[in-house]
């Protein structure tokens, strides 16, 4: 690989404005490689039970993109997401993320990496039933040492407001609708302003009205705040909102395409040959100008 330039995103807390910075202090430019996965493989089980959930997958994600991983059930989407986000160790291959080879870090370093950069939305809301919406957000902000108690509260309220939950911060999960709960879960993922947001089936438990809201929100996040979103789904209705779609089948990456919004014809991109070096961060050729929604 030709000495790729990677970036270290971090949060400018002092200005209160969301900014993503190089490690040198320059803003992280959109459209450059933020994540690069090479030849990822991961199997489960032994003997006759063995399944190769992810089979030699390479892909690249550019910063500020809203990326989908799609495919039928059991095709290895969730496994792929777990590997990319530093939750599940691949059997082979590497993931470069914001300049770090995350699977060569120690467990503690990787945990710190996730703390600094990653937010997660999982299927199901996974909210503490005893805590109010605001507390769910505050908990992450304070326990992650990102903010003081007061700052956390302010941010939580601000974020809930933006998520359309203003005035509902005191409600517990049992008092919120499914869509509202998912928005709280999104708020929890966003409270520390992560550079990378990973979502596994964020809309599957919602009707499309609420699902669409959530997708728009994720897309908005990439457009307005420069975050990068990697989202696993089997719902084709999400495709129009995405910048890039990776199609998986049987553990293979079979196809990657633009989302309709960024390229109306859903142009099919050539897959890299096995072993081929993916375009470096300097080559922005793969990233076409976006068409405004």
């Amino acid at each position: 690989m030709s000495n790729p330039r990677y970036f270290c995103g971090s949060l400018n807390q002092s200005s209160g404005v969301i900014e993503r910075l190089y490690n040198e202090g320059e803003p992280l430019r959109l459209g450059e490689t933020i994540m690069q996965a090479d030849n990822l493989t991961r199997g489960f089980g032994t003997g006759s039970q063995f399944t190769l959930a992810v089979d030699h997958v390479s892909l690249e994600v550019l910063s500020g993109q809203f990326v989908l991983i799609m495919g039928p059930s059991g095709s290895g989407k969730s496994t792929m997401l777990a590997i990319l986000s530093g939750l599940l160790k691949p059997d082979s291959g590497s993931v470069y993320c914001l300049g770090e080879n995350i699977w060569s870090l120690t467990d503690i370093e990787r945990e710190q990496f996730r703390l600094d950069h990653c937010g997660f939305i999982f299927q199901g809301y996974n909210l503490f039933s005893a805590l109010s919406a605001r507390q769910q957000l505050e908990m992450v902000a304070t326990w992650g040492n990102h903010f003081s108690q007061q700052e956390a509260r302010l941010r939580a309220d601000g974020l809930l407001e933006r998520l359309g939950l203003g005035g509902k911060g005191h409600l517990r999960p049992s008092e919120l609708s499914g869509g509202e709960k998912q928005r709280v879960a999104i708020g929890r993922a966003l409270i520390k302003n992560p550079n990378l947001l990973f979502a596994d089936e964020p809309t599957s438990a919602l009707d499309w009205t609420h699902g669409e809201e959530v997708v728009k929100l994720l897309r908005h996040l990439t457009r307005e705040e420069g975050a990068t979103v990697v989202c696993v789904t089997h719902d084709p209705r999400l495709v129009p909102f995405a910048d890039r779609v990776f199609h998986m089948e049987d553990g293979h990456l079979v196809r990657q395409s633009y989302g309709y919004m960024s390229h109306p014809e859903e142009a099919v991109l050539p897959l890299p040959e096995p072993g081929e070096i993916l375009p470096g961060p300097g080559d922005v050729v793969t990233f076409r100008p976006r068409i405004a929604p």
């Binding site: 996730r114 990653c118 997660f120 996974n126």
Partner: peptide, 18 residues
């Protein structure tokens, strides 16, 4: 009973000691 909730926090890098 809160294992999944705690797991979300762990995913986000919040240390176990919390």
């Amino acid at each position: 009973a809160s294992l999944r909730e705690f797991a979300v926090l762990r995913a986000m890098g919040i240390p176990r000691w919390r």
